[in-house]
Write a protein that binds this DNA or RNA. Structure first.
Length: 807
RNA sequence: GCUGGUGUGGUGGAAUGGCAUACACGCUCGCCUUAAGAGCGAGUGCUCACAAGGCAUAAGGGUUCGACUCCCUUCACCAGCACCA
């Protein structure tokens, strides 16, 4: 017997599998279709352990389902546009495109090493013009329907770099690149109207598909639907009105002030001369604050405008303030302050000495004046000091006053959402060009469909210099207006990379289609995908966006389903050996290539799957990799004991074999890979103790292990003279005949504690009296019965017999 | 602060109302070896010098003949969201 040396066998099979193209899926055969989708990797350079973990899971499922007779589609692609590519390229002085395609070649090779059975014919690379052409096509369709639009929004703005910055790129209020102070600025940008689909994106209860509960909760919170009322207040001594959104109009008799967000359009207009300077100063200050700073400092700040609004309910004058705890991005950017029943309003009132009124009875019937924050009763109670609302429960009061305010014409019921539209503009080079042309005469003119794709020019100065890189490429920018033929220029912004990866799994099926985004019938047959494996970090990003695209495709009439994945699972995370997230800066990265050199791909796959449940978050443990390797070596060593059919399998052999088949099959089906492997280990422990192992059982062992460890099983299969390939063998079936137990071990409990275990013949298992007698007379049980009386006997057939005993 | 989740040996974990600690790692002892490593065998929750027994699934309480599992309270940790009116 040769020694088990993974590096001697793995490359050999890799080559053969690649040649024979075993994983190619015939899409025209839709019988028992099964689409395994794993989040496409970002082209960052090398596959990391996380990729191994996730793709091994997908691969095991794909191999398992194929052998159960399913027509499996297991594709993969590359998420190839984005900031990291551009930054890496700038650093290494390589063109982002070259850098990206080099990485793709390398990563594909590494996927080969991993031994995953991906069908590379069905693929998508998001930076290929043949892919992003359809990004642009979708954008045009959205533009036609008003789902894509151009508008202004407050953003982090670096005045020296002349670009919008993500919150993550603002460090202590300063630009990460040039160090100048970042300000809030209204910037014209492209949006996708997520809010149009807010209600459709909201998950129903129960959900239509099997997605993780935490994701569903988080998405619904993110969408944040809330029903309330816009109340209009007159500003005393002016013709102006202020509209405030509130979900708690029931407390309106307790309103004592109004607060406007610093960005509210009325702020300066309303401010009295003597207060104007202070108000201006305050607005400037808060504009300079980044989102981060606003969140960090929760101490309330604000300034008075000098004006008052009138509460129609009781004709009281409410001072109008400006404060940055009110956000322009939510509701109307103006809030009516009810300090007695809102903690934030209370803090604000305390700080600036504003009146506090009680309108809801507190805990234990407290009706005293509210002076402490603990007395601020927010979510329940009965109304008081509120005229016609007195005595009502707050929820009844809310209904009553909403109707009242509407009838009086003072308010209008409205539903608002926390969800915002999606800003997709990026002042960057390495992304999908937004396919519009700006013309002085005609405004924004969409590029004609026949002129797609608008290709990204190669020769561009993508070094940072204060304007979008594409703007420097004049040949590309300057075009004739498609409408009037006059001077015009291309849009120089590119799309957020999350646009690209919101719909890639559709294109996988029809990636060469030049005429349309995809063939409708093909999609109807193959999507929704059966299982989508990905990371929990995409809860409110990618998975929400891709659901949004699906809703949009539905409206275009391209598809007829509502959700694109029947099941979504969040994989776990492999941390560094030190228990922290792997990162180059920490120096705790475990490089898969090096581990493969030491142990082979099979051992790494097995180790990762044996760690625990698929969603485990745990540290890399070199000792345990050794354990997985050890197991494979023992499987390898078993071939010495294998013998032909001169011997018969014993009853015990057969029982254990069929039990193992059943358990492994069930476990893989439920993604319980760790216990499936444990079951195989138990069986191996049994087989290793036998003098001879029969070919019949050895073959089954290899077949069950094959999805986890594709190389060693293929090799051993071939060594034992079986026909290529093990991965095309039908999945072993367990036979019920061997699963019937003749004897059952039955625990006997005395007052809930197990005292003995009886071996019971199966045919008397239903005979309560006999069992009872056996239990009562068992020696170990007797010891606990002396001097006591048996009160009650509970027998659960086949499971347990429980005696209740007392003195 | 809100939402969701988790808590079991020295370690990763198994068991989702019925024999707690499967499987693996680590450790200890033994065999083999000139030696190291690898391999093979035995042991390994705590307590009790052994045995018999008792105790143990974050802490406390409850439901049940029976609870890691269901319910309540508290604590700790993880993740996401967070001045959302």
């Amino acid at each position: 017997m040769k020694k088990y040396v993974p590096s001697n066998i793995e490359p050999k099979w890799q080559k053969k599998w690649a040649q024979e193209d075993l994983n190619k899926t015939d899409l025209s055969n839709t019988k028992n279709k099964y689409y395994v989708l794993v989040e496409l990797p970002y082209t960052s350079g090398d596959l990391h352990m996380g990729h191994w973990f996730t793709f091994t899971m997908g691969d095991i499922l794909a191999r398992f389902k194929r052998r159960q007779g399913c027509n499996v589609l297991f594709p993969n692609g590359f998420d190839a546009f984005g900031l990291p590519a551009e930054n890496a390229a700038i650093k290494q002085k390589v063109h982002p495109r070259d850098w990206t395609y080099q990485n793709i070649a390398r990563m594909k090779e590494q996927f080969g090493t991993m031994g995953v059975s991906i069908d590379w014919q069905k693929t998508a690379i998001t930076c290929d013009p043949e892919y992003y052409k359809w990004n642009q096509w979708i954008f045009l369709k959205m533009l036609e329907r008003g789902i894509a639009y151009r508008g202004k929004a407050l953003s982090n703005w670096c005045p020296s770099c002349q670009t919008v910055l993500a919150d993550e790129n603002v460090e202590a209020g300063k630009c990460w690149r040039c160090g100048s102070e970042v300000v809030k600025k209204e910037v014209m940008q492209w949006f996708l109207k997520l809010t149009h689909y807010a209600d459709k994106l909201l998950w129903q209860n129960p959900p239509q598909v099997d997605w993780p509960k935490p994701l569903i909760e988080a998405q619904n919170d993110w969408i944040g639907k809330s029903e309330g009322i816009n109340i209009t207040y007159e500003v005393a001594g002016t013709n102006e009105e202020i509209v405030c959104f509130t979900t708690r109009p029931d407390t309106n008799f307790g309103a004592t002030f109004i607060v406007l967000a610093p960005e509210h359009p009325l702020v300066l207009k309303l401010s009295d001369e003597e207060y104007k300077n202070k108000v201006k100063e305050y607005i400037d200050q808060s504009a300079k604050k980044s989102e981060l700073q606003r969140k960090e400092n929760k101490e309330k700040t604000g300034v008075f405008t000098g004006k008052f609004a009138i509460n129609q309910l009781n004709d009281e004058k409410m001072p109008i303030w400006v404060a940055d705890y009110v956000l322009m991005g939510y509701g109307t950017g103006a809030v009516v302050g009810v300090p007695g029943h809102d903690r934030r309003d209370f803090e604000f009132a305390k700080k600036f000495d504003l009146a506090v009124k009680r309108v809801v009875v507190g805990k234990d019937g407290d009706t005293s004046a509210i002076t402490q924050i603990e007395q601020v009763q927010e979510k329940e109670g009965k109304m008081v000091n509120s005229s016609f609302l007195d005595g009502l429960d707050i929820h009844q009061a809310t209904k009553k006053i909403m109707d009242y305010l509407e009838k009086k014409g003072w308010g209008k019921k409205i539903t608002i959402y926390h969800l915002h539209d999606w800003s997709i503009s990026r002042q960057r080079y390495w992304g999908t060009p937004i396919p519009v042309i700006h013309c002085d005469n005609c405004g924004v003119v969409p590029v004609a469909e026949k002129d797609l794709p608008v290709e990204l020019p190669y020769q561009v100065d993508y070094q940072p210099q204060g304007k979008p890189p594409l703007a420097t490429s004049e040949d590309w920018v300057l075009v004739k207006c498609p409408k009037c033929g006059g001077k015009a220029s291309r849009e120089v912004e590119t799309m957020d990379g999350f646009v690209d990866n919101s719909w890639y799994f559709y294109r996988y099926l029809d990636s060469k289609n030049e005429k349309s985004i995809f063939d409708k019938d093909l999609i109807a047959n193959w999507i929704p995908v059966n299982i989508y494996i990905g990371g929990a970090e995409h809860t409110v990003g990618h998975t929400l966006y891709s659901r949004f695209f699906t809703k949009f495709f539905h409206d275009l009439g391209l598809i007829s389903f509502d959700e694109y994945a029947l099941k979504r699972v969040h994989h776990g995370v492999i941390l560094g050996p030190d228990g922290a997230r792997m990162s180059k800066s920490r120096g705790n990265v475990v490089n898969p290539d090096e581990e493969v050199k030491k142990y082979g791909a099979d051992a790494i796959r097995l180790y990762l799957m044996f760690l625990g449940p698929f969603n485990i978050v745990t540290a890399w443990n070199p000792d345990n990799v050794n354990g997985a390797y050890h197991f494979l070596q023992r499987v390898w060593g078993l071939q010495e004991k294998v013998t032909g059919n001169s011997l018969q399998l014993t009853d015990k052999d057969l029982k254990l074999m069929h039990k193992t088949i059943k358990k492994v099959t069930e476990d893989i089906g439920q993604l319980k890979f760790n216990t499936a492997i444990a079951t195989l280990m138990e069986w191996l422990n049994y087989l290793s103790k036998k003098d001879k192992v029969l070919l019949e059982e050895y073959k089954i062992l290899l077949q069950l292990l094959a999805p986890f460890a594709p190389y060693i099983t293929e090799e051993l299969w071939s060594i034992s003279g079986e026909k290529y390939s093990i991965h095309q063998q039908p999945w072993p079936q367990s036979d019920n005949k061997y699963l019937q137990e003749v004897e059952v071990s039955l625990p006997v409990q005395v007052n809930g504690k197990v005292k003995d275990v009886l071996l019971i013949q199966k045919d008397i298992l239903d005979n309560k009296e006999v069992i009872e007698k056996m239990a009562l007379t068992a020696e170990k049980v007797q010891k606990f019965l002396s001097g006591k009386s048996v009160k009650k006997v509970i027998y659960i057939p086949g499971k347990v017999i429980s005696l209740v005993v007392s003195n």
